[in-house]
Amino acid sequence: MPKITFVSPDDGRTTVEAAGGDSVMQAALANGIEGIVAECGGAMMCATCHCYVDEDWLSRTGAASDEERAMLDFAASEVRPSSRLSCQIAITEELDGLTVHLPEAQI
């Protein structure tokens, strides 16, 4: 199973195993990661699963769609070039070792 490391704003790190085909958001919720709220359950309607993809992983997670970029305008924390909605990042074996940073706030 691929592993994902979530980095909290205070640099705390939690690494979890994630099922292929799930989203990064689903992996966070299944493992009780604080900092991913996911109010809409992954429907790309709320921006409360905002995360920052680690620079080393940006090319492997793909670019955000126009719809995702538009939804990020509603994020509670600063939107950066590495911002993604974690519900839109599908877990694959190629993402084993992915690191995402959590923002200061989601709501």
Results as ranks from 00 to 15, higher is better:
Met1Thr: 09
Met1Glu: 12
Met1Leu: 10
Met1Asp: 08
Met1Ile: 03
Pro2Cys: 04
Lys3Ser: 13
Ile4Trp: 04
Ile4Met: 11
Phe6Lys: 02
Phe6Ser: 01
Val7Arg: 07
Ser8Lys: 04
Asp10His: 08
Arg13Asp: 00
Arg13Gln: 14
Ala18Val: 05
Ala18Gly: 03
Ala18Leu: 06
Ala19Ile: 11
Gly20Phe: 03
Gly20Ser: 11
Asp22Ile: 07
Ser23Gly: 08
Ser23Asn: 06
Val24Lys: 05
Val24His: 06
Met25Thr: 07
Met25Ile: 08
Gln26Val: 14
Ala27Ile: 04
Ala28Pro: 02
Leu29Val: 15
Asn31His: 15
Asn31Asp: 06
Glu34Val: 15
Gly35Gln: 02
Glu39Trp: 07
Glu39Tyr: 12
Glu39Arg: 06
Ala43Tyr: 13
Ala43Gln: 13
Met44Trp: 02
Met44Val: 14
Met44His: 05
Met45Pro: 00
Met45Glu: 14
Cys46Pro: 07
Ala47Phe: 01
Ala47Val: 00
Cys51Ser: 06
Asp54Cys: 08
Asp54Arg: 03
Glu55Arg: 13
Trp57Ala: 04
Leu58Ile: 15
Gly62Glu: 00
Ala64Lys: 01
Ala64Leu: 01
Ser65Asn: 06
Asp66Val: 11
Arg69Cys: 11
Leu72His: 04
Asp73Ser: 12
Ala75Asn: 04
Ala76Gln: 12
Ala76Val: 04
Glu78Gln: 15
Val79His: 10
Arg80Val: 03
Pro81Thr: 05
Ser82Val: 05
Ser82Tyr: 05
Ser83Glu: 06
Ser83Gln: 10
Arg84Asn: 10
Leu85Lys: 06
Cys87Asn: 02
Cys87Trp: 01
Gln88Asp: 08
Ile89Asn: 00
Ala90Met: 13
Ala90Arg: 15
Ala90Ser: 13
Thr92Cys: 08
Glu93Asp: 15
Glu93Leu: 11
Glu93Asn: 11
Glu94Leu: 12
Glu94Gly: 11
Leu95Cys: 06
Leu95Arg: 03
Leu95Ala: 03
Leu102Cys: 03
Gln106Glu: 12
Gln106Leu: 01
Ile107Phe: 15
Ile107Tyr: 13
